[in-house]
């Protein structure tokens, strides 16, 4: 099929519609081929350069940056310093939008004390405010000349299945080799040394997962572009999202912690019920 090598366009609605019609007749097919050629020649260099496609654009509107500046000064600057240059908490001069969006949208920031372990909370800011803070910090980073990783786009950007779109299977393999050792194969979390709690991934959105992979919110290691391509990050995020939303085929998931809760259920409920039954059937003696 002539469409195969041009998946770049797949996630764009207008082309999708054309493509559907294209399957109807050869005439349309030629038209689409011409259109796709045009798109290819336009999108090709963009793909080879900066990862346009797999990054969510950050607002550069002065209004947003200014609003973000106000919010930052009010809620963040006491630790991160005015202008994000760092104080009792690290400077944010090269962290990039992904890190800011991750920490703020998961409610890990703002933190009461810089010594506390940041854990997931209900976000303190509205999505709009978060976008404004991200815009502000991004502007600071860009001005400093060290922009960090952008907010990764996830598989939702990829409307149709195709060779370019990550699959669940790809995400599953990457997750099991790189993430499961800490977060559990079922994404329910665990325990790191020195009292660091490894969070469950079941409440996180796909975007937050992708951000965490790229950013490496310490004590978690980071996984840079040399290790995972953007598509691979999207695949992991997609799989984790699937993991936490897909229904449990076997019934109740009992915390998804594996054999320990299973043994608990077997002893307390399984044997427990049978002891009560035995008590009702047998004599007290």
């Amino acid at each position: 099929m002539s469409q195969a090598p041009v998946p770049v366009a797949r996630w764009r609605r207008p082309f999708e519609a054309i493509r559907r019609r294209a399957l109807g007749g050869p005439l349309a097919l030629i038209g689409v081929a011409v259109a796709l050629f045009a798109v290819l020649s336009w999108a090709g260099p963009a793909q080879a350069g900066t990862p346009v496609r797999w990054t969510v654009p950050v607002s550069t509107k002065p209004a947003d940056i200014k609003a973000g500046n106000v919010l930052f000064d009010l809620h963040c600057s006491s630790c991160h310093g005015m202008g994000a240059v760092g104080a009792s908490a690290p400077a944010l001069l090269s962290v990039g939008p992904a890190a800011v969006d991750f920490f703020v949208s998961t409610g890990r920031m703002p933190l009461n004390s810089p010594k506390a372990q940041p854990v997931r909370h209900r976000p303190y800011f509205s999505p709009k405010q978060i976008a404004q803070i991200v815009a502000y910090v991004n502007a600071v980073d860009v001005a400093h000349g060290t922009p960090g990783p952008g907010i990764p786009a996830v598989v939702a950007a990829c409307k149709k299945q195709g060779p370019e779109c990550p699959t669940l299977s790809e995400g599953d393999q990457l997750f099991l080799l790189n993430c499961a050792q800490c977060h559990d194969a079922s994404g329910s979390g665990g325990m790191l040394s020195n009292g660091y709690v490894i969070p469950s991934l079941r409440a996180a959105t796909a975007t937050q997962i992708a951000e965490a992979v790229r950013v490496g919110p310490r004590p978690m290691p980071n996984f840079g572009p040399g290790q995972f391509t953007d598509q691979q990050v999207a695949a992991i995020a997609d799989y984790v999202h699937w993991l936490s939303t897909a229904p449990d085929r076997g019934g109740l998931g009992i915390a998804h912690f594996g054999p320990v809760p299973e043994g608990f259920v077997a002893i307390i409920f399984g044997l427990g019920i049978l002891l009560v039954v035995s008590r009702l059937i047998g004599n007290r003696g």
């Binding site: 080799l177 194969a185 085929r249 076997g250 019934g251 009992i254 299973e262 077997a266 002893i267």
Partner: peptide
């Protein structure tokens, strides 16, 4: 029928380089 046990499709096939948190044997 009602309570999931040992969802091996989540654990994936074994490879020596992989491991999962919560690696425990059955209770006994």
């Amino acid at each position: 029928g009602l309570v999931q046990i040992n969802p091996i499709w989540i654990y994936g096939p074994f490879e020596a380089a992989r491991s999962s948190a919560g690696t425990q044997p059955d209770w006994y």
